[in-house]
Simulated assay, not measured.
Amino acid sequence: MNTVLPLAEPASRRDPRAAAREAAKLAKRLRHQVGKAIADFGMIEDGDRVMVCLSGGKDSYTLLDILLQLQKKAPVSFSITAVNLDQKQPGFPEHVLPEYLRSIGVDYHIIEQDTYSVVTRVVPEGKTMCSLCSRLRRGALYTYAEQNGFTRIALGHHRDDMVATFFLNLFFHARLSGMPPKLLSDDGRHVVIRPLAYVREADIAAYAEHRGFPIIPCNLCGSQENLQRKQVQKMMAQWERESPGRIETIARALGDIRPSQLADPALFDFLSLGRRDPGTPPPDAHAWLAGEPHAPPGDGS
């Protein structure tokens, strides 16, 4: 997500030395959090070729920047290539990303694919384009990764994105699922990683402001962001104002799942729990619903 959060005070109005110290502490914290996520979930191995998906938003800029810093002292050797998909939205500043990527000396590639025309043709006017646009973008990036031998696809989703996705699935799809830090694609061909899994969006916004990344807005297509996600983000922001630290608590809870305390028989064997006679199959749901009597033990009838 590329939501820009308001900062308490512009860095230019603070004491330059204090601002520099704060920026250094923030960078150190982000490196620690990203490094811990990589280690906790085994995101990057020796010899990996990591494709960093760069959208031009604060999240993906920060992801690329921190990974490049970690690469210099990492315990394993891996390569980084920044990849952007130019979807041909009207007014897209095509020069911004190539100029920035050349300036920092990172390997990069720009994919040009006119998904904008497809989306505007298929989606009725006034409806959100984000879902279809996202699917087409993912398909293009996956195809490029496969054709060029990348072993990891790194995305810029952060802690708040992961919590918001959990609530979206809970409220609107009646399931407990979310956005995992590491994912194998449905076809088994791609490993997707989210190294910002432990990072707060507010910290990313502050870091991007300090680094002066050339942000490209995600509103060029004129589409409205998913209203359900907006509702969840508004709820989360209110929670954080009223009870600071609540989002962090929820994020940590997503990593402490207890199947026996939930109600999914596919994850926990409730049928066998406490059974006195494991050798006898229990009556099925049909028998219970139909009210069919069960013959008592020793009944010869």
Rank of each mutant, 00 (worst) to 15 (best):
M1G: 15
T3A: 07
T3I: 15
P6E: 01
E9A: 08
E9S: 06
E9P: 00
E9G: 01
R14C: 07
D15K: 01
R17L: 05
A20I: 11
A23L: 10
A24G: 05
A24C: 00
L26E: 13
K28P: 00
V34R: 02
A39G: 07
G42V: 08
D46I: 04
G47R: 04
D48Y: 11
R49T: 09
R49V: 09
V50R: 01
M51K: 10
L54V: 15
S60W: 02
Y61T: 01
T62E: 06
T62W: 01
T62F: 02
L63C: 07
L67T: 14
Q69N: 08
L70A: 01
K72A: 15
T81R: 14
N84A: 09
D86C: 05
D86M: 05
D86R: 05
Q89F: 06
P90R: 01
F92Q: 07
P93S: 07
H95R: 06
H95Q: 12
L97I: 15
P98Q: 05
S103G: 01
D107M: 00
D107K: 11
Q113C: 10
Q113N: 10
D114F: 02
T115G: 09
Y116N: 11
V123G: 11
P124E: 02
P124V: 02
L136Q: 07
L136K: 05
R138C: 00
G139I: 12
G139K: 14
A140W: 06
A140M: 09
R152K: 15
L155E: 15
G156M: 04
G156K: 03
H158R: 02
R159W: 01
V163T: 13
A164R: 07
F166A: 11
N169H: 13
L170S: 02
A174T: 02
R175E: 14
M179A: 11
L184Q: 06
S185D: 14
D186H: 09
D186W: 04
D187G: 06
H190G: 00
H190V: 13
V191C: 12
I193Q: 07
E201N: 02
A202D: 02
A205N: 13
A206S: 06
A208H: 08
G212S: 09
C221E: 00
S223V: 07
R229G: 05
Q233I: 08
E240R: 03
P244F: 09
G245D: 06
T249L: 08
I250F: 09
L254R: 03
R258A: 08
R258F: 04
R258I: 08
R258C: 04
P259F: 10
S260Y: 03
S260W: 02
Q261H: 08
L262C: 03
A263S: 14
F268W: 14
L271S: 04
L271R: 04
S272N: 12
L273Q: 11
G274F: 15
P278G: 10
T280W: 00
P281V: 12
P282T: 15
P282D: 15
P283D: 02
A285H: 02
L289A: 15
P293F: 01
P293V: 01
H294R: 03
A295D: 13
A295R: 15
P297S: 10
